[in-house]
Structures are given as C-alpha cells and as structure tokens.
Amino acid sequence: MREERVVLAQPVDWAFWLLLALLLGAPIVGRPWLEGVSWSGYLQGFTMMFISILLEAVPFVLLGALLSSMIHIYLQEDVVARMLPRSHWLGLASAALFGFLFPVCECAIVPITRGLVRKGVPVGMATAFLLAVPIVNPIVLTSTYYAFGGAWGVVLLRGVCGFLVAVFVGHYSGRLYQRYNPLRTVGFYEVQDCDCGHVHAHGPVAGGAGHTLSQALLGLLQHTRDEFFEVGRFLILGAALSAGLQTLVPRQWLLSLGQHSLLSILAMMALAYFLSLCSEADAFIARTFVGQFSSGSILAFLVLGPMLDLKGTLLLSGAFEGRFVRQLAMTVTLAVLGVGLLANAFHL
C-alpha cells in the first residue's frame, strides 16, 4: 500500500502527454503545414532516407540485442574462460575469423561485443571480433564479389585487409586495456541501485536456472526489450545524422579529391564514415567510385565502413567509455589509412 502512495505522489508526466500530442498532431497539423513550406522536399528526402536506414538496420540490431541478452543471461563467465584460446595471437585470429561461423553485420555486433566483454572476454579479442566480423564474413564477401562483377582480387583484398587491421587494432587495444575494463560504468546494466525503474538482470537471474520455460522466455524478452531501448537510441541518432548529411551535402564536393593519393583516401574514408552504409550494401556504392577515385581509397572505403562509421560510433559510445571509443577510432583510422596508402603505392 505504501508503495502505491509513493507512485501516486509523482508529479504529472508532462513529457508523456507532449509526446502523445505530437504523435496525434503530426498527421492533422504537421502534414498540411509542411506541404506548404519551401524546404518540404528536403524534409521528405531526409525522412525517407532516415527511416530506410532504420528499417534496414533494425532486424540486425534486434538480433544483436537478443543474442546479447542470451549471452548476458545464459552464458557463465567460467564457460567463457574455458573456451578462450591460451595463445594471444591465436585468440586474436580466431576472434577475427569468427564471422565465418557467425555472420552478423555492424549493427548487431556492438551489443554482442558488449555482452562478451561483460562475460570476461579480453578486450583485445573482443575488439578484433567487433572490427572483423562485419567484413570477414561470407555474406559481405559475397556481396562484394557481386558488386565488383566477380573480381576475386577485390574480395580477397577486402577480407585480408579487414582481418589484418582487426588483429592489429585488437592487439593494440588488448595491450592498452589488459587489466582495465572499458565498458561504460554508468550504463544500463552496470548500476546496481539506480532509480531508472528498470528491472535489471545481473547474471543468470531473469530466466536463468530454476525458472520455468515461460519465465525464462519472459525474462529473455524483457531483457532484449531493455537492451533495444539502450542500443536503439544510438542507431536512431546515427541514422538521422547520416541521412541529414546526405540531404544537405552534395556528393560532388568530394569528387575533386578523387585522384590525389592521400586526399582521395581521406575523402573516401570520410564518405564511408558519414554514409553509415550497411556492410552488405557498401560494395555496390564503392563500385560507382572505381576509376574516379584511387584504388587505395576504394579499399579504404570497403575496410573502414563496416569497422567504423557514424552510426557505429554512436552505438559504441553507448557501450564503451569515450576514451576507448576515441582510441579505437584513431587506431582504426590510421591503420586503414596505411592500408590505403600501401595499396596506392603498389598500384593494387
């Protein structure tokens, strides 16, 4: 009874009613008003691209949230510890090649990686896994094969460079974070007694051992729902920024840089970062730049995009500390830049 009185004493949630009014007012007031304004074409284009990026990514983000919740609820730390290879380099390499068994794209990989680090997977291995799986997997390599009209060389270069960059950055991150966990401590699951009101699951609690099947399923779904609430916000922000840039910035601006060895690579890396394309689709876009841009810059686009883009950075910053995300972004950028410059130097 006391608990109910506390709840009743809460102030009226104006934000709730404001959002409801916006939702109801959009088709009644918003639509007719927007049809008359001069920038309606830009808003329409932005909306279409924004929602399309979300729709393309949401199945994979949900899959990531579901798998991450399964890891969180069912996977025990000691099992993880037993499964890890003893050798440092073997661990990095096997993590980077895991995409062949577990082909998920860059939207799903962040929550899964967070779940793995929480269960004690070393940061270096988790980083190699995070960076390589969205590139070194059969789905992405097949789409690259089709996009480049059966050019095995491009497929091989993309796969090998993706693998090497992931192992290199994984090794570097592993050294930096040997005894320190870079997961965000003010995150959703890490605060024990927060007042956010969520039902937190710590370890095998919700739906774990000792529960009936329906309780286990309910616990898993509730956890997935909360994980989606946590991860989805970064997906939406990333999609909005990417769609906004594509709406406002003409792509032609980048074209003048196409043949310069260094500038072309930087331009294509910037494009890969801001477009935030799904790694299944990016090869088809990269192909339209062949010839106009140096080969190293095309390779840099293909390697960087799935590892680091605007949407992914926001997803990462929701899971990991800012310092880790900055260091990761910097190392990946430098490594991919090096790959691009080498490819240009050897006229690959």
Binding site: L22, A26, Y42, L43, G45, T47, M48, F50, I236, F289
Partner: peptide, 28 residues
C-alpha cells in the same frame, strides 16, 4: 527519439526521394 520516425512518417508519407535530395547524389 524513438517516436521521431513515427512522427516524421506521419508528416511525410512514403514516396520516392524528392528531386532536391536526388540532385545531392549527383550523376555518378
């Protein structure tokens, strides 16, 4: 944030990309 796509979709019903945005993509 989560409601933004719904609100925008209600304001701008689905159709092909507008000419303003298509022109930003260029003739590549």
């Amino acid at each position: 944030l989560f409601l933004m796509p719904l609100i925008l979709a209600l304001c701008c019903p689905p159709q092909m990309l507008s000419p303003e945005v298509i022109s930003q993509k260029g003739l590549m």
